[in-house]
């Protein structure tokens, strides 16, 4: 019961926070250069991790698909199936998991320590709006950066798949790539991009929310980080389901 109540409390505070962020955005959007510097910062810190994990996610999916396809002797389909499976679903999901740690936890730790060291209060006292000065550049920057990182990670997953199919399933690269378009349709690509946008928004909003909410000492920062990474993963899985439903509906409608 306690868990449920605190969950509902957090949910309410989260939507109030979103409302405040949006109304601030409409009233006084942040300067572009601050957003760019945030995007750059996120890129610098996460590019390596994203490519690394994207690569292995692709490799894992290829192994799994290859083992299943082998039963039917339909190795030709490997390229299409594993690429489509990775792009549509598993790629965005797992890479977003990773980014929620890398970007989300980092940002909430940063905001959390600004909060507990009274920097956020100082900003208010010096006549500035912390939502506009601190939260918005990060919020927008992380949405943009995470989206591009997700797409970039999925690209690396494709490379991982190509390489693994060559090493593991004896499907040569040309054969692999040739079969990609037969199964990877526009809707699959759309699904991947759509999920990336949604996940990017979830990560950006949750990490700024929990970081901004932190109060207390050093422990509160740790708590904010833990809450952020759990809330990110949890909502990513739920949103994964939700977006799959939407894509499914669109697919049928087409």
């Amino acid at each position: 019961m306690q868990i449920l109540r605190s969950f509902v409390d957090d949910l309410g505070l989260y939507f109030l926070f979103l409302k405040e962020v949006f109304s601030t955005f409409c009233k006084s959007p942040p300067e572009k250069k601050y957003i760019y510097s945030q995007v750059l910062k996120v890129f610098q810190s996460s590019l390596l991790t994203t490519s690394f994990s994207g690569f292995f996610v692709g490799a894992i999916m290829t192994i799994q698909f290859a083992m299943q396809i082998k039963m039917f002797g339909a190795s030709g389909y490997l390229g299409g199936l594993s690429t489509s499976g990775t792009v549509r679903e598993v790629g965005p999901l797992l890479i977003a998991f990773l980014l929620s740690g890398k970007v989300g936890a980092y940002t909430s730790a940063e905001l959390g320590s600004m909060k507990v060291s009274e920097q956020i209060d100082a900003i208010r006292c010096l006549g500035a709006n912390p939502i506009q000065e601190i939260i918005l550049p990060r919020f927008i920057g992380i949405i943009l950066a995470s989206f591009f990182l997700l797409v970039y990670g999925i690209l690396f997953a494709f490379y991982g798949g190509v390489l693994m199919s060559y090493i593991f399933a004896d499907v040569n690269t040309l054969e692999y790539v040739r079969h990609v378009p037969t199964i990877m349709t526009g809707i699959s690509l759309f699904s991947g991009v759509f999920k990336s946008i949604v996940f990017a928004f979830a990560i950006a909003s949750l990490c700024t929310f929990y970081g901004y909410k932190a109060s207390g000492g050093a422990k509160a920062v740790g708590k904010a980080v833990v809450s952020t990474s759990v809330a990110c993963m949890f909502s990513i899985v739920i949103l994964d389901w939700f977006t799959t439903l939407i894509v499914d509906v669109i697919n049928r409608w087409l």
């Binding site: 890398k102 936890a105 959390g112 320590s113 507990v116 920062v221 740790g222 980080v225 833990v226 990474s229």
Partner: peptide, 18 residues
């Protein structure tokens, strides 16, 4: 410091996931 706990936790989460 407060940053110490935060960055330790962040690095741990990322490294564990990777």
């Amino acid at each position: 410091g407060a940053e110490g706990v935060g960055s330790a936790t962040t690095q741990a989460v990322v490294s564990i996931s990777v």
